[in-house]
Write a protein that binds this DNA or RNA. Sequence first.
DNA 1: CCTAGGATTGAGACCGGACTCACATCGATT
DNA 2: AATCGATGTGAGTCCGGTCTCAATCCTAGG
Lengths: 373, 373
Amino acid sequence: MSSDGTRRRDVTVADVAKAAKVSKAQAARALGNYGAVSDDVRERVLAAAEELEYRPNELARSMNTGKSNTIGVVVGDIENPHFGLAMRGITDTAKKSGYNVILINTDEERAAEVDAVRVLLDKRVDGLIVAPASSVETSHLQQVRESGRPLVLLDRAAAGVDVETFAVDMGRISYESTLHLIEAGHRRIAFVSTVRTDAPYVAGMTLDSSQISDRLDGIRRAFDDAGFPHPTDLIRLNAGDADSIMRITRELLDGPDAATAIIASDGLIALSVVEAIQESGRSIPNDVSFLMYDDFAWTRLTTPPLTVISQPVYDMGIAAASALIRQIEGRKAAGPGPDLVATLIKRGSVGAPKDAEALLPDAEIAGILPDRW
Amino acid sequence: MSSDGTRRRDVTVADVAKAAKVSKAQAARALGNYGAVSDDVRERVLAAAEELEYRPNELARSMNTGKSNTIGVVVGDIENPHFGLAMRGITDTAKKSGYNVILINTDEERAAEVDAVRVLLDKRVDGLIVAPASSVETSHLQQVRESGRPLVLLDRAAAGVDVETFAVDMGRISYESTLHLIEAGHRRIAFVSTVRTDAPYVAGMTLDSSQISDRLDGIRRAFDDAGFPHPTDLIRLNAGDADSIMRITRELLDGPDAATAIIASDGLIALSVVEAIQESGRSIPNDVSFLMYDDFAWTRLTTPPLTVISQPVYDMGIAAASALIRQIEGRKAAGPGPDLVATLIKRGSVGAPKDAEALLPDAEIAGILPDRW
DNA sequence: CCTAGGATTGAGACCGGACTCACATCGATT
DNA sequence: AATCGATGTGAGTCCGGTCTCAATCCTAGG
């Protein structure tokens, strides 16, 4: 056991003061390094503190400074390396400025998120970084706003919550990527996401995730601009666990009207989609083309290496934390934040569809492609 | 900006009490759900609280209960999915029991870890889960012990720190895996780890990481039992970033005495090793066999899928958090914890070495293999 | 030598809850 | 009707710091 007889009560300033034979106020001043303290007193206090192994109680300190030097982070799933990396950016930045991080995982459940936000507010964090599970039901975030506590959003925007948001322009990159697929000859392009919806997808509908809405918009615009109909039957939302994703993938690839290309909405989905493709005996990109969000290191290791949409996740974490801390400390924004742009990294998983003879790299498509391509 | 004129000072029990026309004590009782309160008072107080949107200040509460309902977690690298998953186990478990988690990343730096522990102690966390960067220099962990605050170790043991530790038996699984490679015909088996050492490796030396020491012991024992000399020249520690790992891998595969099999000490190392192998134009397992720690989903996606050592990381997180919370709440261990055993999952990345004609599946080896193989 | 003004210092209030203690209140018991 | 135990209740203390304020100490200028 630990007990060496004495049940060690924490050493407080009062104890140090007594040992140094000064008033509590003086001891506190010497320890806290504020106010006026004579060298003599300071020395005695510091010596006593050392001797007694005094450690300040941050809780008490926070109580009357009103600052906890802690920021709360609410994400859907840290198990997802996407958030793991963002988290890294956040903690690295926080540490540099002397802040700690309380992390709460919501499993992408709004109820859990509401709870998380409340708990963090109750714990008097100095500010919050939230990756909102829903971009629509955001009353709890508005409440944060009203509480006056700084708030910053990560990864996704939230309707009616006018705060700094650190996310990439999904519409743009989605458009660009879809065009890339269309240019390769694909018309039957599927999109698989775990975002939950009650109603089936229709163009322009409001989804719980602004991110996904934006991506779908990008896809639609690409098809529109290319002059082809957008195959909305291939939009698969509500993809849940690994099994369900694999099932969906098999469905997508079966039948006369099968998809010729699949876009996976995140790294976790990608794993199951690729696994299902491989299991079905199909090859990428000969039988199916594949494109995914997030450039994880392992995407270079598959055969062929995967074409991905790289997002500056670590930088997003840094930017979010920096901005939050700036707000906490009441400083004005020095300038526009860093450009958080996603880029399409073309590797080997996108090729021409099998029935490629049906199409040609027509001027019609080439015409709409930006010059830099 | 946010100010609607009033600089909203937090609503306190005193405010609620006044609004409900009762004493502060009564309001506190009604709100905190303790002591004796008449129905009438309770109703009025709760109504007033609702009206004023009262929220308790957890800091204040923690101050005089001495409980913060927060546990501190110190890991080397949250970006590493290994810890991401463990973290998930921890947060899931903590949430169930009403605890929050403060996460600190140490970058595997001991100084940062010492700091982290101190900060968390100062913040009066109720307990700590640490994945110690060093299994040797553990004075800061002993101090935690002395402070009387519950402590639990994750992933790695620490010398002189007698607390519950949740890690798999690395010696056993390393032995088993090495035997698997030896049985396949390998004699030149390399091991790549990022663990830092000053001196070059010699058998039995003390490393900063008990985990790696145990693995190396396992390898050595396997070679001993199989009756072959352990090629210590292929033990590569101090592997740093991706570039350095790739360089090391190339060295390992070059020359007349090249390695015929490589064991990667974790998922991050594995990525670079495999990339280097592929880049060098070699194929797995025809030119090199490969084995790695941690069964990440992507390891099934490479060609061939990789043979891995699966660790119950999520369960380790759960077990660690459960045990810690049990200690915090002063309960005795109900029984032995769950068995945290690693298993070798044989997939396609281990084959016979190229010069396989030199050897045969001799009885000598078969003899030492456990029956269940 | 005297005094103004800055440097030191200690007492005590305060942050926002939890909790102790002494003092009602009240129905039930005998 | 007097008594007793079980509630109810409010005043006030405490947790461990920060910070205000008035008092005291010095030292240099006059």
